[in-house]
């Protein structure tokens, strides 16, 4: 089953959000309009809007307010992708040339800033200060997380706490904020909104850990990039940290990256095999599962509702994700 099938019943709402996204990024300048819509047309799972919608449905659902939150969260995510491609010097995203590759860094920077501005302009339609506090704090943390990621590259001596804080900032908080914003937009009581925030946080942690596992276990075809690419870029993820407890792998890793600029996708192949033999993949899945269990636990007190059921299904789907 595809992830999108778990929230198939949201098609009407998601179509509305898709239209609102397209409207939000209509620029006056031809090329800016083209670059802004390019990423939108490339699609994506729209997982953040989905969480906003589902959590919004657990309160007094107001389609307009929930849509506002969903659109802004997706725009923030899109803007970060455009800038990430400049950071990573990436040529392809979702199998298509990046804005940076087609138009250069300058245009990509302007596009990202334009989309982010539209996200913030749009979210001010929500006058609830709590919504802005949640989102702005999240955005600061996300930016800090990305800066930390640069700092921690090729740092083999970092610990598990570093990694967990990084993925919290990089992935989990924006999903948590999506859940909470949906709840706030629909007037879900604070205590329950906090639980939904935590649900999103735990789901985000689990999702990112599995993403980091898949970097080693999925095929190049599935990933759209060579296996082990994160490690090749110097990103030390959970499977690597666990595998490094094996002295033999630790030595191999440090030897391989003695000169990072000389490491190629081909030289990663034996290293990945060695990592798999340490049992690090299974251990990483176990940690991901712990987060998933915690996510599901947050939903215990929420009364029966199709949105609750979908949040549970998404969590289970994420746990089973293998590609």
């Amino acid at each position: 089953m595809k992830l999108t099938k778990t929230y198939g019943h949201l098609k009407k709402e998601l179509d509305m959000i898709e239209h609102a996204l397209a409207d939000a990024i209509q620029a006056e300048h031809d090329i800016l309009r083209e670059t802004s819509t390019q990423l939108l047309q490339a699609g994506g799972k729209r997982i953040r809007p989905v969480f906003v919608l589902l959590c919004g449905q657990l309160g007094e659902y107001n389609a307009e307010r929930v849509k506002t939150a969903a659109v802004s969260l997706e725009l923030i995510h899109m803007a970060s992708l455009v800038h990430d491609d400049v950071i990573d010097d990436a040529s392809l995203r979702r199998g298509k040339p990046t804005i940076k590759a087609l138009y250069g860094n300058r245009t990509a920077m302007y596009t990202g800033d334009f989309i982010l501005a539209r996200a913030l302009e749009n979210i001010t339609k929500l006058e609830n200060p709590a919504a802005h506090r949640v989102l702005s704090k999240t955005m600061v943390q996300v930016a800090k997380g990305e800066i930390e990621q640069i700092r921690d590259k090729y740092n083999w001596d970092q610990n598990l706490r570093n990694y967990l804080r990084r993925i919290k900032r990089k992935t989990a908080l924006l999903i948590a904020a999506s859940c909470k914003l949906g709840a706030i937009a629909s007037g879900v009581p604070e205590e329950r909104a906090v639980k939904l925030f935590r649900y999103g946080y735990y789901i985000g942690m689990s999702y990112q850990i599995i993403d980091d596992i898949l970097d080693f276990t999925a095929s190049e075809n599935q990933l759209g990039k060579p296996a082990g690419n994160d490690l090749l870029q110097g990103n030390v993820t959970l499977p690597v940290l666990i595998a490094m407890k094996d002295p033999s792998f630790d030595r191999k890793l440090r030897d391989t990256f003695a000169n990072p600029e000389l490491v190629t996708p081909a030289s990663m192949v034996p290293l990945i095999e060695s990592l798999k033999q340490t049992g690090a993949i299974a251990s990483s899945y176990r940690i991901s599962d712990l987060y998933l269990q915690k996510a599901l636990k947050q939903l215990d007190d929420i009364p029966h509702h199709i949105a609750k059921h979908t949040l549970q299904t998404i969590a289970k789907y994420i746990g089973k994700r293998r590609s």
């Binding site: 970060s80 800038h83 400049v86 950071i87 920077m109 990202g112 800033d113 982010l116 501005a117 539209r118 996200a119 913030l120 302009e121 979210i123 001010t124 006058e127 200060p129 802005h132 506090r133 989102l135 702005s136 704090k137 955005m139 600061v140 996300v142 930016a143 800090k144 990305e146 800066i147 640069i150």
Partner: peptide, 29 residues
Amino acid sequence: VLAGDYYSSLYYLLLSEVEEIELIGVLAA
């Protein structure tokens, strides 16, 4: 790239904390 994004998030945080929602929109526009 990241510093610019960080500074943008700080402007949003500052104005959110003092509940200047309208000005957030004005600057974003």
